[in-house]
Design a protein around this nucleic acid. Sequence first.
DNA 1: CTGAAAGCGCTTACAG
DNA 2: CTGAAAGCGCTTACAG
Lengths: 332, 332
Amino acid sequence: MDKDRKRKTIYDLAVLAEASPSAVSSVLNGTWEKRRISKKLATKVLRIAEEQGYHLNAQASLLRRDRSNIVGMIVPKYDNRYFGEIAEQFEAKARARGMFPVITCTQRDPDLEFEAAKELVAYQVECLISTGATDPDRIAAFCRAAGVQALNLDLPGQDAPSVISDNYTGARDLTRLILDRCQSDLGWHGALRFVGGRLSDHNTAARLRGFLDAHAALGLTVPEAFIKATGYSASAAWSSLQDFSPSGPAGIFVNSTISLEGVVRWHSELGSEARHVRYGCFDWDPFGKFLPGNVGMVEQDVSAMLEELFTRIGTPQAAGAPTLIPCKLRAF
Amino acid sequence: MDKDRKRKTIYDLAVLAEASPSAVSSVLNGTWEKRRISKKLATKVLRIAEEQGYHLNAQASLLRRDRSNIVGMIVPKYDNRYFGEIAEQFEAKARARGMFPVITCTQRDPDLEFEAAKELVAYQVECLISTGATDPDRIAAFCRAAGVQALNLDLPGQDAPSVISDNYTGARDLTRLILDRCQSDLGWHGALRFVGGRLSDHNTAARLRGFLDAHAALGLTVPEAFIKATGYSASAAWSSLQDFSPSGPAGIFVNSTISLEGVVRWHSELGSEARHVRYGCFDWDPFGKFLPGNVGMVEQDVSAMLEELFTRIGTPQAAGAPTLIPCKLRAF
DNA sequence: CTGAAAGCGCTTACAG
DNA sequence: CTGAAAGCGCTTACAG
């Protein structure tokens, strides 16, 4: 059935409609009024196309047209609300602007990331957005050579304009919130632990600066051993706390909801000591509010980041300093 | 710069490499050994392609080839772990099989769903998978007319083969777990509330049957008013419980993690009565385990569902009865 | 070992 | 109001 039923083309429709392929094409792509084709013929062609199960061959159409209107995005994971929201809103905003969005998920794998970038460029994307890419500059260099616009979201690069959250301020405010709540809930004042992320990542580094500055502003010093940037895995976060059995009050700054899973597990295993622990998390999850001990979360402003990004699509610019978008602090 | 730097084609490379476009093409697409082109020429062409920032025009290539290798998937949302995992694993499994995955997210909007299906068919997908589509049969009919294979995931359709979770058994087992825990934790035995979903949805209907049968097996009858299938929104779930102030023990079956957000909010606002309430949720979220009162969740077996689905890609079959994949019950 | 040539299914300037 | 024709950038059977 797939075999004998060859796909219909405009030539097939032209024969059936007793018109030329040109006329059929222009009816189908909506330029028929401009070409002053009769309404009667247009209706007829549309009816026959429907009857025959005709559908455009986008490859042929795009090959002939000068613009593709395709915008590509590379995303590392769909395992948290942040990237899920980015993907959803990116698609919606692209469609609202008459563009065709294509998103691909690369599992934080640098090679897969680059392969995906090459594929998207082959599909003639007009712009390629790298979200949280491990090596945005490699992708940007490739895009430059291919004449495709490159943009970075969530992680800054040197070779393409970047839109990122204001990680420093968000982290500083969250740290202050946790410190305040340790004071008010526990009557305790002291340095927090920092759990999760990688110090080599720009975002983690910026958040750590905010974390340390918030402490410094209150005259607190954070011991080296309190910084546990053990990567992006729940079990690593959990493991990093195994040598920590708080005998008194304590507080934790959790970097990412992935790490939060590990911290919450650790917290749930503490027993009665758990009531002396407060924590907060950089990144948002709707269940976070109901986790015992969690005093607040930082929600990145996905909509604002994407709006900013879309203003740049189509208007090539130099890389420059990253554009910072403020985060929203959610206190519980 | 975008203007003067026209994209390189194989003709440009052929001139630079002093070879024919045919030779360049076959070097670039890896068939050069079969064509017994000299290694020397191959190396030269590859080097020049790299230097010139050449990249394939997938549109031209696909237009000429007989197969696209593209598999399309339509997904309603990325706002929970379930669809996020489906998207991630679908991409990974497709790549592992040498296919090119394209996923698009349609916000549970029937029109957007259909538009997206048409776009994917225009892009020459060889197979289109509808995940949790509101109207899978409309999409399947369109695909049939266009000669494209259609498959349904997560929601069954009449017009295309379907792979879905065994919602009935999963719900029955979860109901039994909640009833057991009400007995053991609260010393109480009675009918549970059912919150979330829509009775017109196949999945909700199947889950409700499992829910009712688990009650019946224990000689319990569920009052009509206990069934609150108020849709897929946290606030609707929350609202539906506003007339419910448990003065004694109570239990709730929560249908979907979206509804869980509303139930947990209601639960957190109960005050001391909350300790008399137990609930469980159909669908998995890693934070679920740490929510007070939550006794267990049902995790759908995404990997098994997709493996089953991939066995069907490329081998057209009649619709038939849906294939049921067992769920995993996670007791806390 | 390699090239000339046809053709995939469209779009659009051009010529009536 | 409409059609003939060129061409988008590839791939591949065919012919050396």
